[in-house]
Amino acid sequence: MDTQTDGRRWHDMGGQDAGPISDDQHDFSLWEKRVDALMILCSGKGYFTVDGLRRVLEDMGEEAFETMSYYERWIASINQNLIESSAYTTEELATKMAEVEARGTTYGDASLGK
């Protein structure tokens, strides 16, 4: 459900009712920092813009906002934008993901300890 009945989209939150502000805090893990770096580098090189990042995040919908972490949503959006700008194809991504998954069951193993 992207759109309320009045046309307001889910991400456009200003003035909506919401609960108390939580002070839960965590620092970012390596894979999250890498996602952040990929966004800055790819947008800096002109593959897409921060507006394209946001457009896909918005189109992913409210359920993604509620169930995925911040950088999970970012890598999904970065990937969508990179496919749209022909950086690689969906088939190349699928093949590479299968290769990565076959390397092991932890992030450390799958990223070859790097």
Binding site: D27, K45, I75, E92, M97, E99
Partner: peptide
């Protein structure tokens, strides 16, 4: 604490991050 990554089960989105990063390096984009 950092959010755990290296020693927890590999997630779908982590797999995607590794794949995207390696494709970008292979294609000399970064």
């Amino acid at each position: 604490p950092y959010r755990a990554d290296d020693d927890t089960p590999l997630s779908y989105w982590q797999t995607m991050e590794i794949a995207v990063r390696e494709l970008l390096v292979e294609k000399d984009i970064t």
